[in-house]
């Protein structure tokens, strides 16, 4: 059973970090959507509510999304609807229901590096960075690949590019986790092909992305890029699907997403 011994609402990030690192079982609370499903015995639960981390803000070069921003905020944000063909709202809107999305947070999701995550896949295709309180700013890609010590995710930073982007996922029941999800972005000649829920963590298919950038984007090229992506990424089996099926579908979704990106205005 999930238990909490003590509960604090710190007024500064410094304080939150100090408490977090004071004891091994001290824990940051995101929206608790996932936390509560485990049987964690939390020493001090740290509530970031008072740190003003619920924001989506636009700057010259970047868009910043605070750790305590909920998925529903992402989904309904006029700002985010206007960028990257509404990629981020698209990516989160399938997740269960409005009431859950009113709770679960960007910080809890990104920090946890969930393999099934739809948001992470989308953020990768935008070359997002994360700002951690202690570690500082690192690329999301880097963050996902390297285990780090306990830290607090403060915000996600998205370069304000002219990327066109598309998110797509395969779900059997529409409110289920994705069997596989993909995001594809393009800025000029630069392509990024990302696949997640394989069921492993989302990853950029570098070779395939590069190939596409230097190709003529014929249907053969697109087919080849999708094939490259499948061979450079690893896939696995779980209750939702076999490795083979994931590979098959991922390839199809990537091809389609590339096509859709090309069709974007």
């Amino acid at each position: 059973m999930f238990t909490i011994q003590d509960y604090v609402v710190p007024g500064t990030l410094e304080e939150a970090y100090r408490i977090l690192t004071a004891k091994r079982n001290n824990t940051i609370l995101g929206g608790c959507g996932f936390l509560r499903l485990g049987s964690q015995r939390i020493g001090t639960a740290i509530d970031l509510t008072n740190l003003n981390l619920n924001f989506i803000e636009e700057y010259d070069q970047v868009i910043e999304i605070g750790a305590m921003t909920t998925f529903r905020d992402l989904e309904t944000s006029p700002l985010l609807k206007g960028y990257f063909n509404g990629l981020l709202p698209q990516a989160v809107k399938h997740i269960v229901g409005v009431q859950l999305r009113n709770i679960v947070t960007v910080g809890g999701t990104v920090y946890s590096r969930y393999g099934f995550s739809d948001l992470i896949t989308a953020l990768l295709s935008l070359e997002a960075e994360v700002e951690l309180f202690k570690t500082g700013r690192v690329s999301l890609e880097n963050f996902l690949e390297n285990a780090s010590e306990k830290d607090i995710l403060v915000k996600v930073i998205i370069p304000k590019t002219a990327k066109k982007a598309v998110f797509n996922s395969m779900r059997n029941s529409q409110s289920d986790y994705a069997i596989v999800n993909v995001a594809v972005s393009k800025e000029g000649d630069r392509w990024l092909l990302v696949a997640g829920a394989r069921p492993h963590r989302a990853k950029i298919a570098r070779k395939a992305s590069l190939f596409l950038a230097n190709s003529s984007l014929s249907s053969e090229d697109i087919e080849h890029a999708a094939n490259l992506a499948i061979s450079e990424l690893t896939f696995g089996s779980n209750m939702r699907a076999s490795q083979k099926y994931r590979e098959t579908v991922c390839k199809v979704l990537l091809k389609r997403a590339i096509g859709e990106v090309l069709a974007c205005k």
Binding site: I4, Y7, L29, G31, C32, G33, R36, L37, A45, R72, V96, G97, V98, Q99, L100, N102, I103, S175
Partner: peptide, 22 residues
Amino acid sequence: TGSCGLCTVWLDGKPVLSCSVL
């Protein structure tokens, strides 16, 4: 587990899952 919506109440006017809010 946050999956059914039966526990929906409003928190500051927004619908949330009361099973998932501390």
